[in-house]
Deep mutational scan, measured.
Amino acid sequence: GATAVSEWTEYKTADGKTYYYNNRTDESTWEKPQELK
């Protein structure tokens, strides 16, 4: 099967917290998305 390329990108805020942003859905989350686990 084809490997899905994750749409999630990991970013850090100014105070060093990590969050994740999805370019396709324009969604952001503090929790690590399922695709990255």
Rank of each mutant, 00 (worst) to 15 (best):
Lys12Thr: 14
Ala14Tyr: 03
Leu36His: 08
Tyr21His: 11
Lys32Phe: 06
Thr25Lys: 04
Leu36Lys: 04
Ala4Phe: 10
Ala2Met: 12
Glu31Trp: 06
Trp8Val: 01
Lys17Ile: 09
Thr25Glu: 03
Pro33Gln: 02
Glu31Ala: 05
Trp8Tyr: 02
Gln34Val: 13
Gly1Ile: 14
Lys37Leu: 15
Glu10Ser: 05
Ser6Asp: 12
Asn22Pro: 02
Thr13Phe: 04
Ala4Arg: 01
Trp8Thr: 01
Glu27Asn: 04
Lys32Asn: 07
Thr29Arg: 10
Lys32Thr: 07
Lys32Glu: 10
Pro33Gly: 02
Lys37Met: 15
Ala2Asn: 12
Thr29Val: 12
Lys12Glu: 08
Trp30Asn: 08
Gly16Gln: 01
Asn23Thr: 12
Glu10Asn: 02
Thr18Leu: 10
Ser28Ile: 15
Thr29Gly: 03
Ala14Asn: 10
Glu27Pro: 01
Glu31Arg: 05
Thr9His: 10
Lys32Leu: 10
Thr13Trp: 02
Tyr19Ser: 02
Ser28Thr: 15
Thr18Val: 12
Ser28Asn: 07
Glu7His: 08
Pro33Val: 02
Arg24Ser: 14
Lys37Arg: 10
Gln34Ser: 14
Ala2His: 14
Ala2Lys: 05
Trp30Lys: 04
Lys32Ala: 07
Glu10Gln: 07
Trp8Gln: 01
Tyr11His: 13
Glu31Cys: 10
Glu10Arg: 01
Tyr20Ala: 00
Gly1Ala: 13
Tyr20Ser: 00
Trp30Glu: 09
Ser6Cys: 08
Thr29Asp: 03
Thr18Ala: 06
Asn22Ser: 03
Lys37Trp: 14
Ala14Met: 08
Leu36Ile: 10
Val5Asp: 12
Thr13Tyr: 03
Gln34Met: 10
Asn22Glu: 02
Ser28Arg: 15
Thr3Trp: 11
Trp30Leu: 09
Tyr19Arg: 03
Tyr20Thr: 00
Gly1Tyr: 13
Glu7Phe: 07
Glu7Met: 08
Thr9Asp: 06
Lys37Val: 15
Lys17Tyr: 06
Asn22Cys: 00
Ser6Gly: 11
Glu7Pro: 08
Thr25Met: 02
Ser6Val: 09
Arg24Ala: 14
Pro33Trp: 02
Tyr21Val: 11
Ala2Trp: 13
Ala14Arg: 05
Leu36Val: 06
Val5Ile: 14
Lys12Phe: 09
Pro33Glu: 03
Asp15Asn: 08
Gly1Thr: 14
Lys12Trp: 07
